[in-house]
Amino acid sequence: MSGPLLHRCAVCGTSTENRCSGCSKAGGPTIFFCSPDHQKLVWHNHKRVCRDKSAAFVAPPLSDVEYQHYRQVADIKFPHAKPPELRMTIAESVEKALADRKLPKDFERFVAISRTAEDLADSWKQMLLARIRADTAFLMTDPTGGVLKAPFVGSSTPWEFVAAFADLVLLYHPELSPIANQLVRFKHHTLILHTLLSLRLASSSREIPDDWILRSFENVVEALNDDIKYQHMSDIHRFSKMTDLLSEPVKRIVDFETDQGFFPGMGILELTCYPK
């Protein structure tokens, strides 16, 4: 079930019936743009996952910047709430996954392939690629913290940002699979949100208004309705904790408050953002 905000421009939130034709024709999620100008504004990132890559949100290979980020944090062990002897680095985590799949346990080879291969559409390869990106984003944001934090826009690439956001959702919703074709529209809108936040940071003027960023963040949260059904009042606490995490990088640029609208039994939990 889709929420009430579905027919809104992914950039500014204006009500519209204009869909991204590339995503629609390829069987991807419904992404709306009120005008060609707003679609062009985020196209430099969105085009990487449009058309044939849209339906499964097939992320591109690791960039040189991402490889440099990985090298900065490669030897840091994750400080999660585990006994120290069980903590692993990014490489050790991926090598364990390779071993579990009875594949050659060579992380550096997988990273090399992920930087150059054109065929990364396999869901399992995408999962490992997202694992590297998310872990790198978390460690770039806070290499010593014991709790996962949403990455800051200035410290992460768009693909690291998307992978980390999806990982934070999985943290609160273990019923979702990191391999299954889920959270697709959520990832598309998260990519657009990162694009708008980056443009805002790079702009010396307010070319990207506060309201556009808030409407984009609302679209991100609303897209969760594709895969998560919040049907009980008890879900509100979990939803609030998750959205508080997701809102951190946004609030670094636009300070805002939220209201939540919950409709029991309908699977819709709506978030509305207001500038402070």
Rank of each mutant, 00 (worst) to 15 (best):
P151W: 01
L183C: 07
P61K: 08
K276H: 10
A91M: 03
S114K: 02
D227P: 03
N45L: 09
T272I: 11
I76T: 10
I132L: 09
W124T: 14
P275G: 04
S155Y: 06
K229S: 12
F256E: 00
W124V: 14
M127S: 07
F152C: 09
Q72L: 13
E207F: 09
F152R: 05
H38L: 02
P174C: 13
H69W: 04
R133G: 04
L129D: 02
A59N: 07
R71K: 14
A121P: 02
L62S: 03
A26Y: 08
D142N: 13
A99E: 12
C273P: 00
L128P: 01
K25H: 13
K77A: 11
M266N: 09
D119M: 14
L5T: 01
E248F: 09
S54I: 01
N225H: 15
L176K: 08
D226P: 03
D100I: 06
T14H: 08
Q182W: 03
R51P: 00
F107L: 09
E270C: 07
I31V: 15
C12Y: 02
L176C: 09
F239Q: 12
R71A: 15
K77S: 12
E95L: 03
L199P: 08
P4W: 12
Q231P: 11
A74D: 12
R131N: 12
L41C: 06
T89P: 01
L120M: 15
Q126D: 13
P79D: 09
Q68M: 14
L148V: 11
F262K: 07
L271S: 01
D167L: 04
F186Y: 11
A163H: 02
L193R: 00
S247W: 10
G146I: 13
S2C: 06
